[in-house]
Design a protein around this nucleic acid. Structure first.
Lengths: 225, 225
DNA sequence: ACCTGAACACCGTTCAAGT
DNA sequence: ACCTGAACACCGTTCAAGT
């Protein structure tokens, strides 16, 4: 904290985009979305405020750079045999990324679509193309999958993150589950009945069951016509 | 602006929660999420800053009140015969609400789940319960539907909102569609092929096709076991 | 071309003070 | 119980000035 003066003489003063994005990710991981600040970022890079704005237009660009750094294009280049397996592999990649970086889900969901989001759309879509020849069905299935992956991933990542607390991750889920069990049965019959089901929530298998559900729907639709 | 002094003598100085929520919705509709400010809200209610904090704990509570005001419980109390029709009716209600209030989508998607989100979960789940007896399938289907409805609704609302611009809503979609057509065919084969499909994007039928897809998946899964 | 740091116009939140 | 308004500790963004 106090020794930020002249540890390194002056090997290279340049602050490349890579380092900015990496530092932004560190800040986001450590202190959440509100922890990412131009001033905090400049302090961490041992430079003055206003430097980042020279490289990136604004805060949206900064979040975008952090997102791209954490979910690189290569990660989505899966090819696991069948289209279904490939889609599952991509889904797991995104799931794991959101799980490791809880801020990522909200960032991806935020309209308008960024490059990263369009890239996931493209990669999933290529496999969907192999499952049905109809454009309308391809579009519906791909956007449905994308919405599910981002949405469910965000929800599950949130409960996972509570593991730093006293109880651990299983305990956090148990607590939420107990909360659902205390709901008024007259007003919340369904949610209450899902309390036990909620305990298995948050693992990859649960998540992948939703992916399979959508793919089953695509198959069923195809069969009927 | 200048005549905010003593138009009304002093019939009732109380500023009830209802008026706060209603004014917040007006502000959000007019100027977006960044337009909702404690100071702007107090000015609109012709009172001093700091009043709102006495009624609502913080800004999260303010957004929550606005969300509940715009998506009341009664709106979800649909019963349109079959479970599928009921679910479609609820989905359309949420879709229309997001379309009318573009800030709503991001608000609902934001974790953790608020009362409003849990209520939609409950209402959809009750109909899903009628479609399959398995708890695991009920949970998957309900959360998949919810993620799709919020996610797809947000995306579609965004493109709808561009109608205030020069071109109108169809023009905005055409512009985005043209943008997709200009993508590199080597790098973006799928997205490019969806360019024409994108034009039909944003209407209720397109949106409901995704809901049907998920319900078809639930049926198919049930048949296999 | 790249970096500095002060300045501007905000923001949410708190809180003593009034009625 | 309800409202006021000043004060605090921030924030993103801009921009003249340096190297």
């Amino acid at each position: 904290m106090g020794d930020a003066s002249v540890a390194e003489p002056s090997e290279s003063r340049a602050v490349p985009r890579d380092r900015i994005a990496a530092a932004a990710v560190e800040l986001l991981d450590a202190h959440g979305e509100s922890g990412l600040t131009f001033r905090a970022l400049a302090r961490r890079l041992q430079t003055g405020p206003g430097v980042i704005q020279w490289h990136l237009a604004n805060k949206a660009g900064l979040l975008q750079a952090a997102t791209a750094a954490v979910l690189p294009d290569a990660m989505l280049d899966e090819d696991a045999g069948t289209p279904r397996e490939t889609i599952r592999a991509i889904a797991v990649d995104v799931y794991d990324a959101i799980d490791a970086h809880p801020w990522l889900g909200a960032q991806l969901a935020k309209p308008p679509w960024q490059d990263t989001m369009l890239r996931i759309f493209e990669h999933i879509g290529r496999s969907i193309q192999a499952l049905t020849p109809q454009f309308a069905a391809q579009f519906s299935a791909t956007s449905t999958l994308l919405n599910y992956i981002i949405g469910a991933g965000s929800q599950q990542a949130r409960t996972s993150r509570s593991e730093t607390a006293t109880t651990g991750r299983a305990g956090a889920l148990a607590a939420l589950s107990a909360q659902w069990e205390c709901l008024n049965p007259q007003e919340w019959p369904f949610t209450r009945s899902m309390a036990t089901q909620l305990r298995s929530h948050g693992d990859r298998d649960e998540f992948l069951a939703g992916v399979d559900l959508i793919l089953d729907g695509l198959n069923a639709t195809r069969r009927e016509e």
